[in-house]
Design a binder for these strands. Structure first.
Length: 935
DNA sequence: TGACACACGC
DNA sequence: GACGTACGTGTGTCAT
């Protein structure tokens, strides 16, 4: 296949320059080569990875163009080009020539116009066309088969967008609307304003409603207040902005197919250039590992751009190009063009009929419609059911809660039928919702969200996106029913029933269909066991925990809050006195200005990327010696955080119906397999500092006849590393039940455990920690505040002492490179798309994930299994003890006092034996009147 | 309203 | 030799 790449030269250079300008790279002769290096790297990425057959780089000429009606602005823009960027330009041209890539200069047109026109022409001739250009401007081109290529940026792998992705990104229906949005918003060309007061969001909404800038202007009388005023006053400007955003697709430029054919790079041109610019690594990428610049250092580079003969052999680099992107132009199916039977079951008779049908099924798919997204705080609006593709029912539920309950109760035989499997999307929500209406869902579960999470944890699992990706079906959007999210968003209850019927029935229908797509996929990725034995059963456990909630002691918190308030006020006053001025200490911006401009605490203060001074904890700590004001500021911050995030926020989360806080565990966000907790987040309650820990006193048992029991795995991740790697030294340390960090330190520093100093233990602990979280030597040095070299030395010693761990790491990485994924003990997969990336940053990220995912993920598997087994046993023995919280390696229970001694061994045994290991698993268990005492 | 800086847990 | 370095949730500030 012919594959044409069109690059906007100036855009690339600018982009490369600004990406690298934070740490400009100077050669020994003083030339800042950051832009050249960035450009060359991107070029190499394109060539090596995408293997185009044809290519061209397009440069703007310095003449006014059709699009730049405002030439003064254009000139200013050009003149503002930084000096070093201007210097880089000739070198970039040399690079391009060295690679034998044709250059096209735009004569009176923008580079984008040339690219656009060429792209269209090439497309007609059967090319697959890619346009490399900054994100926004090219959107309209994708209206056909042309793809937008975005080079790798810091921390991001390169990205290729087709029409589908662009529409999704812009949240619109038609690609042409991008131009109108840009026109209105004014973000098309630097400094050319659109219509004042209209940002991205407003522009999108208005364009969606009216279709184009012109339409909005002619309907301006329908707008209100300031917006109307602005649209009327700045109509001209809006139109101009749109014009500037529009790419011309018919400029007079010929597609010279032969001339654009790509051929091998010229060694004669590139070698001396790379030598001059001291591009060792880039040279190696192009010419292989024996490339060296040392012996050519003295070779002067031809200054005449066109004087050097171009390499004669025009042997193309063409390789078979596999087109991995399937044709995404196919119009998505939707409710209007796919046959379906969606019934409304709004009478007793119809419901009876429906229930009869449902009771005959082996599995049913259901969904609930509610007034909100928090199952603990909202009400049921309706139920929907599906039993075969294209056929679904919607059962409205009245607002009167007693009537609602009785209708839900009619369906009890279905929901509570153990032999009828239940399918849903994020079914925990629905189970929880029904619990509040007195229904205990039973039977095997199949959650499409969890299925997709297990299949590919790193991606998104929302129903809409799954539907579009796997069924090529675009569901009715929720915003079409209740409006865009925000404070004015409506409520499902206010939507007319016919619309809800379609929406709700469709949801159940889609979910049912997704199940049949995911079932074989689960088999394919060998994750059936994982989902059937862990994730699906866990849903019931989590639903019970969330429903149960935790009791909070208001009095403790109220008093603590008062205490904090006076302390904060005191600290505030001290800080003001020491600074000599009142300011908002909670504002990093103001704080930075006071510390570094008024008090001049550090003349070399670092700034953040937005130009503010950094005022993070480690920065402030390094200043502690210079002024005691920083101590007060740090204390202020700590107390303020405690007060606002925990002490004052927790009581507000208490559910008035139960007087308890009901967190929500998200089972499908953390790619490693861990859970996360929201509303409130119970997984980040303070513990490290004396005062912070106090918050845990407020987590109490339901009454005086109960106690809190807390059980946590000791060093679970390190034990898992030992288990997976079978490293003899580390296994021995655990078998001997040594303090693992001390044992590590003893090994690393070659001394006996009792000689280990606290600093050495701290270092060893940090290394252990770093391995668990996939840190690098840099991360370690930051963590410990030691030079990178020293950190690297410690790590080296560590690996020498624990060779099994080193072996595990390289084995895992090799496995990932070959298979593209890594696995936990229970077979949970994580796909690492970037593991073979040419970009070292991106690849490094994937490599750390490769090592980290099996460890963290196995620990997550283990505690999940323990939770399921404990839950089952508590139920089987009809105990009143309840599991209430999970904090990654800790489980918390609310237990009747007389059951404590009975329950403890159950917890202990199930946690220890969740996964069979050679390394001993240690569980620490405690009891108390509150969480702090129990922990 | 969204981006940012910061801080909490594991 | 530089890039930029665990994740997830929540808070307050500030510019729009």
């Amino acid at each position: 296949m012919k594959k044409l790449f069109l690059l906007d030269g100036m855009a690339l250079i600018y982009r490369a320059h600004f990406a690298l300008s934070k740490s400009p790279r100077f050669t020994s002769n003083g030339l800042n080569t950051s832009a050249v290096m960035g450009f060359t790297n991107t070029l190499l990425d394109v060539l090596k990875k995408e293997k185009p057959t044809h290519m061209a780089v397009v440069f703007d000429t310095d003449a006014p163009t059709e699009r730049h009606t405002d030439y003064e602005h254009y000139k200013a823009h050009r003149e503002a080009m930084p000096e070093d960027l201007a210097k880089a330009l000739p070198y970039v041209i040399k690079v391009i020539l060295g690679f034998n890539i044709p250059v096209i200069t735009s004569d009176g047109y923008e580079a984008d116009d040339i690219i656009g026109t060429l792209a269209k022409k090439a497309e007609k001739k059967g090319y697959q066309v890619y346009c490399m250009t900054p994100d926004k401007d090219f959107a309209q081109l994708v209206s056909e088969n042309i793809r937008i290529y975005k080079p790798a940026r810091m921390g991001n792998e390169m990205e290729i967008l087709g029409v589908k992705e662009v529409l999704e990104k812009w949240e619109i229906e038609r690609v042409e609307q991008v131009i109108d949005i840009l026109g209105l918003w004014g973000d098309a060309v630097d400094n050319i304003p659109g219509i004042p007061g209209i940002g991205e969001k407003t522009a999108k909404a208005l364009i969606k409603q009216y279709g184009s800038v012109e339409e909005i202007i002619s309907h301006s009388h329908e707008l209100k207040g300031k917006q109307r005023e602005n649209v009327e006053q700045f109509a001209e400007q809006g139109l101009l902005s749109k014009k500037l955003a529009t790419i011309l697709l018919d400029v007079p430029v010929e597609l010279d197919e032969e001339g654009l054919e790509i051929c091998a790079p010229s060694k004669g041109l590139l070698e001396p250039l790379f030598a001059e610019l001291e591009f060792r690594t880039l040279g190696k990428r192009v010419f292989g590992d024996d490339f060296s610049i040392t012996e050519m250092k003295s070779v002067s580079v031809q200054t005449d751009l066109f004087g050097e003969p171009v390499a004669t052999a025009r042997n193309t680099m063409t390789v078979d190009v596999e087109d991995i992107y399937e044709d995404n132009i196919i119009a998505a199916k939707n409710i209007d063009n796919v046959p379906h039977e969606y019934h409304l079951a709004d009478t007793l008779e119809k419901r009876v009929e429906l229930i009869d049908i449902l009771l005959q099924q082996q599995t049913i798919c259901f969904d609930t419609e509610t007034t909100g997204t928090d199952a603990n705080h909202c009400e049921l609006v309706g139920l929907s059911f599906a039993v075969k593709p294209g056929q679904a029912w919607y059962v409205p539920v009245p607002a009167n809660q007693d009537d609602a309950k009785s209708i839900v109760t009619e369906f009890k035989p279905v929901f509570e039928h153990k032999q009828i499997g239940k399918i849903g999307q994020n079914i925990k929500f629905d189970i929880l919702m029904l619990k509040w209406y007195g229904v205990e869902v039973q039977g095997d579960l199949f959650d499409t969200m969890m299925a997709h999470y297990v299949i590919d944890p790193d991606t998104r699992h929302g129903m809409d996106i799954l539907s579009e990706n796997y069924l090529n079906y675009k569901p009715v959007s929720i915003t079409a029913l209740i409006g865009p999210k925000g404070k004015n968003q409506g409520n499902m209850r206010d939507v007319e029933i016919e619309k809800i019927k379609d929406y709700a029935a469709e949801d159940a229908d889609i979910t049912l269909q997704l199940k049949s797509v995911f079932e074989p996929k689960l088999k394919q990725v060998e994750s059936e066991k994982l989902i059937n034995e862990i994730e699906h059963p866990l849903i019931y456990v989590l639903a019970d925990m969330e429903y149960e909630g935790v009791k909070i002691d208001h009095n403790t918190l109220r008093e603590f809050s008062k205490e904090l308030e006076t302390d904060i006020a005191k600290l505030e006053k001290t800080v003001y006195d020491k600074a000599g001025v009142r300011f908002n200490i909670a504002s990093p911006k103001q704080l930075g200005e006071i510390l570094f401009e008024k008090l001049m605490l550090d003349p070399k203060a670092k700034k953040t990327k937005t130009g503010q001074y950094q005022t993070g904890e480690d920065v402030l700590l390094s200043l502690a010696a210079k002024s005691d004001i920083v101590r007060d500021i740090l204390d202020f911050r700590q107390l303020q955080k405690l007060k606002s995030t925990y002490v004052d926020a927790l009581p507000q989360m208490v559910n008035p119906k139960t007087g308890r806080v009901h967190t929500s565990y998200n089972q499908a966000v953390a790619a490693t397999g861990r859970l996360s907790s929201v509303n409130p987040n119970l997984q980040n309650i303070p513990i490290r500092t004396e005062r912070g820990r106090e918050v845990r006193k407020a987590f109490i048992p339901r009454d005086s006849d109960h106690s809190i029991v807390s059980a946590d795995y000791s060093q679970i991740e390190l034990r898992i590393i030992a288990e997976i790697s079978k490293d003899a030294n580390m296994m021995q340390a655990f078998i001997n039940n040594l303090d693992i960090h001390t044992a590590t330190a003893a090994n690393v520093y070659g001394i006996s455990p009792d000689e280990v100093t606290s600093d050495q233990r701290r270092n060893a602990k940090a290394v252990n920690f770093g391995i668990i979280y996939g840190q690098s030597a840099f991360g370690l040095s930051q963590n410990l505040g030691i030079p990178r070299k020293e950190a690297a030395d410690i790590i080296e010693q560590y690996f020498a002492q624990f060779p099994g761990i080193k072996q595990y790491m390289s084995n895992t990485m090799n496995f990932a490179r070959e298979n593209g994924y890594v696995c936990t003990l229970m077979g949970r997969r994580r796909y690492l798309r970037d593991i073979n990336s040419a970009n070292a940053t991106v690849r490094g990220f994937a490599e750390r994930n490769a090592i980290n995912a099996p460890i963290q993920g196995s620990a997550a598997d283990m505690i999940k299994i323990a939770m399921i087994n404990i839950h089952r046993e508590l139920k089987a023995q009809k105990l009143d003890a309840r599991m209430t919280m999970q904090v990654h390696d800790e489980l918390v229970f609310d237990v009747p006092n007389h059951e404590i001694e009975l329950v403890k061994p159950i917890i202990m045994h199930n946690m220890k034996t969740a996964i069979k290991t050679e390394v001993p698993i240690l569980v620490e268990i405690g009891t108390g009147l509150n969480w702090l005492e129990a922990h």
